[in-house]
């Protein structure tokens, strides 16, 4: 009797260790560990390093705390980049959302036979590497030999300095961003549209709703979560956009089309002040983080309403 009691008291800790190892949640954790480490290495380390860099002086020899930010806040160009980035990101996201929504409706109403073809074709701008397609746009925008200005000339209009004039240059970079980004909205909204049960529309039809009321009272509320998440996602990506501005205008004319990423590149890499460049690119992080928390909290609160 006492023997068995002793044996079991010895066996207990070993068994729990083995049990702990055998638990599905432990196994799952161990299996995801490589990925967690990889993400840590590829995301957290650079992010932490960027924060560290932002606190150093130009020679990267001395800790200056918020010195880089104090310097930036005193510069007019920085505030212009902030303004420019906001205009760029917000305008582009709004138009991408509207165009994506409208196109998603058109595609949704195409009979399913032809729909795949259209879906595929409409995704093309989003699938081509942006650097490549932006080059094509650059040629289209060329002041002397481009297709756009040629067409304008046929109608007797004056050539437009697409990338030479500040306002036209802003317009051009936003236009290209919209062209590249709309298909993403289209495909997300299309998926959302397909998840709205047809019977809701039929019920609304019988309740007497016209097409606009069906969109306003059924489609939009049913798509709210997808709209919010897609807009947030796109807002973050658009704020961080680099390739379009870099290729199309390189920030010009007179730095008037710079966004955070391109200006940070200019300051940090091309002008050799890496800590200042890191500070520029980090400036938006707290704002985007707050926006993300607010939007995602709202999404979680609403949950799946179906």
């Amino acid at each position: 009797m006492s023997q068995t009691a002793q044996a079991s008291s010895v066996a207990v800790p070993r068994r729990t260790m083995r049990q702990w190892l055998k638990r599905p949640s432990t196994i799952a954790f161990l299996m995801t560990l490589p990925l967690i480490l990889l993400i840590g290495l590829l995301v957290l380390y650079p992010a932490g390093y960027a924060i560290h860099l932002a606190t150093l002086n130009k020679g990267m020899t001395r800790f200056v705390g918020f010195g880089n930010f104090e310097f930036l806040f005193g510069r007019e160009t920085f505030w212009m980049v902030v303004k420019q980035s906001c205009i760029f990101a917000i305008t582009a996201v709004v138009f991408k959302a509207i165009i994506g929504f409208v196109v998603a409706h058109f595609v949704h109403n195409i009979p399913s036979k032809g729909q795949r073809k259209w879906r595929g074709m409409l995704l093309v701008p989003w699938v081509i590497p942006p650097a490549m397609s932006t080059l094509a746009w650059l040629w289209l925008f060329d002041p002397s030999y481009s297709a756009f200005n040629w067409v304008l000339a046929q109608f007797g209009a004056d050539p437009v300095p697409w990338t030479g004039d500040a306002y036209w240059a802003r317009f051009s970079v936003i236009l290209v961003n919209i062209w590249i980004g709309s298909p993403f909205f289209m495909i997300m909204y299309l998926a959302a549209l397909k998840s709205v049960p047809d019977q809701l529309y039929e019920a609304a039809l019988i309740d007497g709703a016209n097409w606009w009321q069906r969109i306003w009272y059924i489609t939009l509320p049913m798509m709210r979560n997808i709209i919010a998440i897609t807009a947030l996602f796109s807002l973050i990506v658009t704020f961080a956009n680099f390739d379009i501005v870099r290729i199309l205008t390189a920030g010009g004319p007179l730095d008037l089309t710079h966004v955070f990423a391109t200006w940070s590149f200019l300051v940090g890499i091309e002008s050799g002040d890496i800590p200042l460049g890191a500070s520029v690119s980090l400036f938006m992080m707290p704002f985007l983080a707050i926006a993300a928390v607010i939007i995602l909290r709202d999404v979680v609160k609403r949950g799946s309403q179906a």
Binding site: P197, Q199, L200, E202, A203, A204, I206, D207, G208, A209, Q213, Y217, I218, P221, M222, R224, Q305, A306
Partner: peptide, 26 residues
Amino acid sequence: IAMVFQNYALYPHMTVSENMSFGLRL
């Protein structure tokens, strides 16, 4: 006419009274 559907087709984002009054509000 008024129709009752197999899976009810209630508007998930509206309360019961909003669901019932939707047609009248329109």
